[in-house]
Amino acid sequence: MIEVKHLTKVYGEARGIEDINFTMERGEIMGFLGPNGAGKTTTMRILTCFMPATSGTAKVAGYDVFEDSLNVRRRIGYLPETVPLYTDMQVPAYLKYVAGLKDVPWKKIKSRVGRVMEQVGLSHMAHKYIGELSKGYRQRVGLGQALINDPEVLILDEPTIGLDPQQIIEIRSLIKGLSGDRTIILSSHVLPEVSMLCGRVIIIDEGKLKAIDTPENLVAKLQASDSVKARISGPADSVISALKGIEGVKKVESSGAVGSSGEYVVEFVRGFNGSHLLARVAVERKWDLYELTPIKMSLEDIFIHIVTDEDSSL
């Protein structure tokens, strides 16, 4: 459905994105993750034909975004980050206007506008001017205009930014409900959102694609650099030095004490799990081992890991 090859965008001196490659199947939901200025919006703007890439190609629904831009634009719905709307128009009038421009058949415009307004929860705002609406409702209008032509591909740039928790939940479940046959790309800072909604995640940093995989796999792959939490009774100093002596241990940190036992976070080198060695040492020294749990990395940890770690390549 979406095919991106060697996509590069250079803004004068500044680098936008560099050699981005990925493909998406119909019905997939892809999350774009990355710090501000990483190139998420740039990638989306190229996919929506708002601007051309410096080099590389991108195909949406089988059409090249540069060669066949009108055909691409007919098949997408786009919600820009800033949700730009005409504030002097009423909600239904605006949606009718967009429906007209997006080739919704004349006869269907009215019913389509009604359906979308219901879908995004705007039915009771029909008499309001867009300028009078709160941020959350404007976001819905933005989503509504993206959906008006029932597009095959939805591209949403930070769809839940600036909303209150209740609205975030509503918009998320709305997006979840839109999936199915539709291919969706969404960018976000909110990591749980991405792991909740998206089948796959792309992590972009400094214009480069750093990782692309399912959230679970990303976690699993990074899990290889195992960290475990161990609760051991024994004099803290000697426990730490004993743990440090274990093969493959990179770092030991004391993370507090529970009763007579201390808690330690032990990080092994990547790809090596030495939990059994740790247990053996505890038994040999006659310390009591109360707890030995692998520390699961959340998407947050992975994100931080990938964008801060120079040599990380997944």
Binding site: R45, T48, C49, F50, L70, N71, R73, R74, I76, Y78, P80, T82, P84, V98, L101, K102, D103, Q145
Partner: peptide
């Protein structure tokens, strides 16, 4: 930005 991404 939206106008330019509509099929217009």
């Amino acid at each position: 930005e939206l106008l330019l991404t509509f099929p217009v």
